[in-house]
Design a binder for these strands. Structure first.
Lengths: 341, 341
DNA sequence: AGATGATGCTAGAACGTTCTAGTCCATCCC
DNA sequence: GGGATGGACTAGAACGTTCTAGCATCATCT
């Protein structure tokens, strides 16, 4: 119960204050606070007691300045991506047991990725985990030359030395969705794509090759979409007037699919009666009882876990050729898909 | 183009390296890097050039350790609240021109507010901005004794010394919504509340007093809701069977309202034909063309701006009695409300 | 001509930790 | 008994900055 503001003068209590109060050297106090061995049981207790009494809190910055290891993983994320929020949740959970702290840096309106990374570097992070980075590959290569970098959810073609890529097999996910729809009896399956969003190209390709493999080449139809409900809605408006109307739609992601569902609902197109809809991500949205969307799930906790463990492995001297870690997606069948007719 | 890893040995370049290369003292190099006056134009150029050449990047931790000011505002936010993301966006924008940096700390599954605040304090933040904090008021008081604390979107009754509160006038927002509905001719107006969420109590109260003022006491109907689509959907299910069914519903927030809309749509209840729906927050969701929700807007950028400016004012010696800053909400009329019948 | 005051610069001490290299003292082993 | 071992502890030097003094130098004012 440190009701009083610690040390007499207004300043924050320091390790020296603790040491003085316990009657030991600051070096020993440091040993005790870190929990390393080298201190007697009695003294240890005395120091901890003193620290508690004056409300001592170690200064992270001084600590990191001195010790060469900072045990910090810098994570860059986008404020407007719920998917990133979910990843962060799991990243925190994975970093903790590995003994690492997380430093966050958001990409926001007036704050690009360049700025976000700058601050992480200035904070002396040991490794960088970038969620869906958009910076040019050259910049990533430059960064990877300085410290371990993990790119999550963005594919990168020529494997850059020192750069780890963790992503979902997006093409495989699209394939699973198409297979599922074909198995239900669908032939006329359209895809609303994600434009230039990370993963969009792979999903598009996965859709195309799966359609070809099923001999449905002439039914291939890719509509310009995007990653918001709005984008899905726009595409769906065009679709509900199209003749022949496809009997199934694979949307770029769940938000996009939700927009599609909404437009169909309003224009009297029954789902899954008249048309089936599949999303991508298995977000909270898809799980909602009243949306109940069939979707391709990304294994978020595995993505996050792998991102953290790769970064840590790198830091602890792993010299592996480093490369790409692709995680299999898993189709989650819910209520928006059924046999046509 | 710092292609080579800076200084000969593998370590990061330091200010001393820059100084050596430019042939000046570290003190002068420091002056140049900070942009303070006290250096000649020619030397300034030479130092900057040297810094660029070896790819020097100031060490934030060393810098903060030495200078007593850290120019850091610690912000605690919840990963699962889109509203917080929006606030953060504006907080970044407001902090920049004021000359402050933002340190982020997320509240996640295995990481409570206690932990989140701990790390912010260890990082030597000068002030704390807490978004929708849930910790007991006693803890807030304790914190406020150590450094300026701003609570955003959570109301606190007895004004705690040193604690600033920035929030929307939730009761007033509910009143505006009810007034709008009454003006349209509605009398039977229900409210789906937010339970224990921050602001819920005020909105509930605002709804009640507004109904009373219009002489509609016997029509007051508060249904248990929550802050997710799911909660709204659950409440709406009960509502669509109720007799008499209300002609209008005020939902706790936009997500909740979306759930309500969805259920009504599915069960053939026309909006706004059969029933009007009003949300709260004016989130992205509400603005989507296919949702087009009448809602009570919170002025996010003003909330954020005020939070930052209050924290900064405190830091710069403002001794005002400090207290509550209440921002007026504004009703945004869109397509989900109309006259009954 | 001496005082005054900028201007441009530097030496060296902080800041709050951790780390290195000891010192001291007891115990153990032959 | 003498050396080796090891546990508990400490002095003092890092870490990479910023800050406080202070030193020249040169122009300007009385």
């Amino acid at each position: 119960m440190p009701a009083t503001p610690a040390v007499p003068d207004g300043k924050r209590p320091t390790l020296a204050d603790v040491a003085a109060r316990a009657g030991v050297s600051t070096a020993l106090a440091s040993i005790v606070m870190r929990g390393t061995k080298g201190a007697g049981a009695a003294t240890r207790e005395r120091v901890l007691e003193a620290a508690r009494e004056i409300g001592y809190r170690p200064d992270a910055r001084a600590r990191l300045l001195r010790s060469h290891r900072s045990q910090l993983l810098g994570v860059q994320f986008g404020l407007q991506h719920p998917f990133h929020s979910d990843l962060l949740e799991s990243i925190y959970a994975a970093a903790e047991p590995a003994g690492y702290q997380i430093a966050l840096s958001a990409v926001a309106a007036g704050r690009g990725e360049q700025r976000a990374v700058e601050t992480l570097l200035a904070d002396r992070c040991e490794a960088l985990i970038l969620l869906g980075p958009q910076v040019p590959a050259a910049r990533l290569a430059e960064l990877a030359g300085q410290l371990p970098v993990v790119s999550v959810a963005r594919r990168l073609r020529p494997s850059i030395p020192g750069l780890e890529v963790v992503r979902t097999a997006d093409d495989e996910g699209a394939r699973q969705a198409v297979d599922h729809l074909v198995a239900l009896g669908h032939r006329d399956i359209a895809h609303i794509d994600g434009g230039r969003a990370p993963g969009a190209a792979d999903r598009r390709r996965g859709y195309r090759t799966a359609m070809n493999r099923h001999g449905l080449s002439e039914h291939i139809r890719v509509l310009a979409g995007g990653l918001t409900e709005e984008d899905g809605a726009a595409a769906a408006r065009g679709l509900s007037e199209a003749r022949p109307r496809p009997t199934a739609v694979l949307a770029f992601n769940d938000r996009c699919a939700t927009g599609v569902l909404d437009i169909f609902l309003r224009s009297g197109v029954a789902v899954p009666g008249d048309i089936s809809v599949v999303g991508f991500d298995d977000s909270h949205l898809a799980r909602l009882a009243h949306i109940d969307l069939t979707t391709v799930g990304q294994d978020i906790s595995r993505l996050a876990g792998l991102a953290v463990s790769r970064a840590v492995a790198r830091l602890e001297g792993d010299k592996d050729p480093a490369g790409e870690h692709v995680i299999a997606p898993r189709l989650v069948v819910r209520g928006t898909t059924a046999s046509p007719h």
